[in-house]
C-alpha cells in the first residue's frame, strides 16, 4: 500500500506540504483552526489558499506549456498588463453598476489571450525558441503595463472591482472559486478529451506527433494562449485585491515561482507527461512556505535563502536516485535496465 503510494508523483510533494503546515503548528497553536467571522471563514489555511490563488492559476497554465517542452517567462508581465488594463478601465468610474466590471474583465482577458497567442505564434509558426519568444514579451509586457499606468500606482475607487480578488462567496474567498473553476476546466479539457494526450505527445516527440496526424502547431499555440489567459485572471485577482494598478511590481518574478511549482509537482521540463494536481500542490508548497516564513518570524532578509533550501529538498526527495542513495528506500524502478534488454539503445 505504502509502496504503491510512494510511486505516485504526488507522494513526496504532499508529504512536504504537510510537513510545512505541521511545522507552523509549533509556532502557532491555532494554525489549523478556521473560524466563521462575519460570514467569512478565516484562518491561516484559508489565507494560504486565498493568497496562493494567482500563483496556482499561472502554474496551471505553465504546466501545459512545459508539457509541450516549452516555457512561458512572460506570465509575470502579463499579470502586470492584465491588472493595469483592468484597473485603468474602471479607475475613473464611481458608479455602482456592474457594467464597467464586465468591461474591465472582458478587455483584459481578451488582450491576455491575444498576447498569449503572440507567444504561441512565435513559437509554433516562426520557430523561435520558447525561452526567447516569451522573454520578448516578458520585457515588452511590463513596458506596456507601465505605459498604461503611466509608471504610477493608480488607485481604483470603483467598489465592484474589489469582488474579484477580495470578495466572498458562500463563506469562502471568491478567488478560491476562480481557481477551482480554472483547475476543473483544465482537468476536464485535458483528461476528458484527447487534448491532454495530444499535448503530452507533442511534448514528447513533436515530429512523430505531426506524422501521426496531430496538428502540433495548433496545440502549441493553444497552450500559450491558455497560459496567457490564466495569467490574465491572476492579474485581475491581484490588482482587485489591492484595488490599484501597479505596472512596475505586480506579478514580478511570478514566472519563476510558477516554473518551480510545476517542477515540484512532478512535470518534467523535458516535456511529455504533466500533472495538474501536482502543480497545484507545488504552488501550495511555495505559498505556504512564504506564509510560514513570515509567520514564524524568520528575518526577512533570509527569506529567499530558506525558500531555495526547501525547494532543493523537495526536488531531491523526488529523485528516486537520491532517495535510494541516502535512505536506501524506494528502490529505483528498473526501467533503465529493462529497456536495454534487447536491441535499442535509447539516449
Amino acid at each position: 500500500m505504502l509502496k504503491g503510494m510512494m510511486k505516485t508523483k504526488l507522494f513526496w510533494p504532499i508529504i512536504v506540504l504537510i510537513l510545512i503546515l505541521v511545522i507552523n503548528l509549533f509556532f502557532d497553536r491555532s494554525f489549523f483552526s478556521i473560524e466563521l467571522r462575519n460570514g467569512h471563514l478565516t484562518g491561516s489555511l484559508i489565507d494560504i489558499l486565498n493568497r496562493g490563488a494567482p500563483l496556482i492559476l499561472i502554474s496551471i497554465g505553465m504546466t501545459l506549456v512545459i508539457a509541450t517542452k516549452g516555457i512561458d517567462l512572460s506570465v509575470g508581465s502579463i499579470i502586470a498588463m492584465s491588472g493595469a488594463i483592468g484597473a485603468m478601465t474602471v479607475a475613473d468610474t464611481a458608479s455602482e453598476g456592474s457594467g464597467p466590471l464586465w468591461m474591465a474583465i472582458g478587455l483584459s482577458l481578451i488582450i491576455c489571450l491575444v498576447v498569449g497567442g503572440w507567444n504561441g505564434l512565435l513559437v509554433s509558426r516562426v520557430g523561435v525558441q520558447p525561452i526567447v519568444a516569451t522573454l520578448i514579451l516578458m520585457v515588452a509586457g511590463r513596458g506596456i503595463a507601465q505605459l498604461i499606468t503611466g509608471g504610477q500606482i493608480t488607485t481604483v475607487y470603483y467598489e465592484p472591482y474589489s469582488f474579484i480578488g477580495g470578495g466572498y462567496l458562500l463563506t469562502l474567498p471568491f478567488s478560491v472559486f476562480i481557481v477551482a473553476f480554472v483547475f476543473l476546466m483544465a482537468v476536464l479539457l485535458t483528461r476528458k478529451t484527447a487534448l491532454g494526450l495530444f499535448i503530452e505527445s507533442v511534448g514528447s516527440n513533436a515530429d512523430a506527433s505531426r506524422l501521426a496526424g496531430i496538428n502540433s502547431k495548433n496545440i502549441m499555440l493553444m497552450v500559450y494562449m491558455f497560459s496567457g489567459l490564466c495569467a490574465g485572471v491572476a492579474g485581475l485577482i491581484l490588482s482587485s485585491n489591492v484595488m490599484s494598478a501597479d505596472g512596475n511590481n505586480a506579478g514580478l518574478w511570478f514566472e519563476l515561482d510558477a516554473i518551480l511549482a510545476v517542477v515540484i509537482g512532478g512535470t518534467s521540463l523535458m516535456g511529455g507527461r504533466f500533472y495538474l494536481m501536482g502543480t497545484v500542490i507545488g504552488a501550495l508548497i511555495i505559498q505556504s512556505l512564504t506564509t510560514t516564513i513570515y509567520s514564524i518570524g524568520v528575518p526577512a532578509e533570509t527569506n529567499l535563502v530558506v525558500k531555495a533550501l526547501v525547494v532543493l529538498v523537495v526536488c531531491l526527495l523526488q529523485s528516486a536516485e537520491f532517495r535510494r542513495k541516502v535512505f536506501g528506500i524506494g528502490k529505483v524502478k528498473p526501467t533503465g535496465e529493462q529497456k536495454g534488454r534487447e536491441g535499442v539503445t535509447l539516449s
Binding site: 495530444f198 503530452e200 514528447s204 516527440n205 515530429d207 496526424g213 511529455g272
Partner: peptide
C-alpha cells in the same frame, strides 16, 4: 519520427486514430 517515447504502448497505438 515514430514512437512517442514518454507515452505508453496503448497511447502510442491509438494516437493516429484519435487524431
Amino acid at each position: 519520427e515514430g514512437i512517442i517515447p514518454e507515452l505508453t504502448v496503448r497511447e502510442n497505438m491509438i494516437l493516429a486514430i484519435q487524431s
